[in-house]
């Protein structure tokens, strides 16, 4: 695939990719994304399956007009906020410093 603009640039990407620090960054990032996605979508798929196949669970009353289904919806909204805030904080403290350092070195190296 003749996409590479330059073999030199190509080599430097590969070299960086194979470096220990990049692999550590990549693992940190992938672990968070995979973990958060599993928790997040797992929650949602279990929830909609309950609504479809075990409606009795969601109909369980919790006093007054409230029931387990409404609680599930409320917690889904809370989960969106929690995952979003957690990822933004994780990325700015655990990913950005390392990725910024790599970027500066890669871009500055041949100037």
């Amino acid at each position: 695939m003749g996409h590479m603009d330059s073999a030199v640039a190509d080599d430097r990407y590969v070299a960086e990719y194979e470096s220990a620090r990049f692999q550590a960054l990549r693992r940190r990032s992938n672990a968070f994304i995979a973990g958060a996605s599993i928790v997040f979508y797992g929650w949602w798929f279990v929830g909609i399956a309950l609504a479809a196949f075990a409606p009795g669970v969601f109909r369980t009353e919790l006093g007054g007009p409230f029931n387990v289904g409404l609680l599930f919806l409320l917690l889904s909204f809370v989960l969106v906020v929690a995952v979003t805030v957690a990822y933004l904080r994780f990325a700015s403290s655990r990913l950005d410093p390392a990725s910024e350092q790599i970027r500066v070195e890669l871009e500055g190296g041949t100037r």
């Binding site: 030199v8 430097r12 790599i102 970027r103 871009e107 190296g109």
Partner: peptide
Amino acid sequence: LTGAAVPS
């Protein structure tokens, strides 16, 4: 992951 654009 880094946004780096290596100069050719």
